[in-house]
């Protein structure tokens, strides 16, 4: 593969070429041919959908549990049960205080450490049959509803880019980062 372009040049071309041959032959680290292109601002905006635990990436928009309840009954309850108790798929509510027992129940309320993750996950992956179909307002409202049925926020509390990162999840302090190697 003689077409690989060497990106970094040393002042002496002959020496550089010689070292380059040696490096290609003996060193595992390699350089690439530099074929990546600069993404457009539009592409970056459309693709950059993840939300950080500090709320970074949260979009404009807002919603409350009162609004979210209607959305939940339309989009979510068939798999997760009318009260978030779980049906075909995951239980979303309850389980508080169960984690240290023989029958732990991991739910958004009892287990999830960050409210921002709820927004991130619902927006990217739910509803299961139509992911990325909800508006940001709808995702905020559903997030608010899931927090509400877990007793974490009030029914009329507005969730938006300012308020969501400040929601204190009950199990937040129980997570221990075990990397590097536990």
């Amino acid at each position: 593969m003689s077409t690989f372009r060497r990106r970094r040049k040393t002042p002496c071309g002959l020496l550089s070429g010689l070292l380059g041959v040696i490096a290609m032959a003996t060193v595992a680290a390699q350089e690439g041919p530099g074929l990546g292109e600069t993404p457009s601002p539009e592409m970056l905006a459309a693709w950059d959908i993840d939300i950080g635990p500090d709320g970074s990436g949260l979009p404009a928009g807002s919603g409350t549990a009162a609004v979210g309840e209607t959305l939940y009954m339309t989009n979510c309850f068939a798999c997760h049960g009318p009260e978030g108790e779980g049906l075909l798929n995951d239980r979303l509510a309850g389980g508080h205080g169960s984690l240290a027992s023989e029958a732990p129940r991991k739910t958004v309320g009892s287990y999830w450490p960050y409210a921002t993750t709820v927004f991130d996950y619902v927006r990217r992956a739910m509803p299961y049959l139509m992911p990325q179909s909800l508006t940001n307002d709808e995702v905020y409202a559903l997030t608010a509803y899931l927090l509400y049925i877990n007793g974490i926020v009030a029914r009329d509390e507005v969730m938006d880019a300012e308020t969501l990162p400040d929601v204190e999840m009950p199990n937040r302090d129980s997570f221990v980062i075990a990397y590097p190697r536990r």
Binding site: G52, P53, A100, Y114, A178
Partner: peptide
């Protein structure tokens, strides 16, 4: 996406974490 810390996605918080006897959970095992 290069970041300054983990993004705490659903998979690395609610799913692939190791709940301990005392109720704590280990992340990024």
């Amino acid at each position: 996406k290069l970041t300054s810390g983990p993004q705490m996605t659903r998979e690395e918080t609610s799913k692939y974490t190791d709940l301990q006897r005392d109720g704590r959970s280990l992340q990024f095992t």
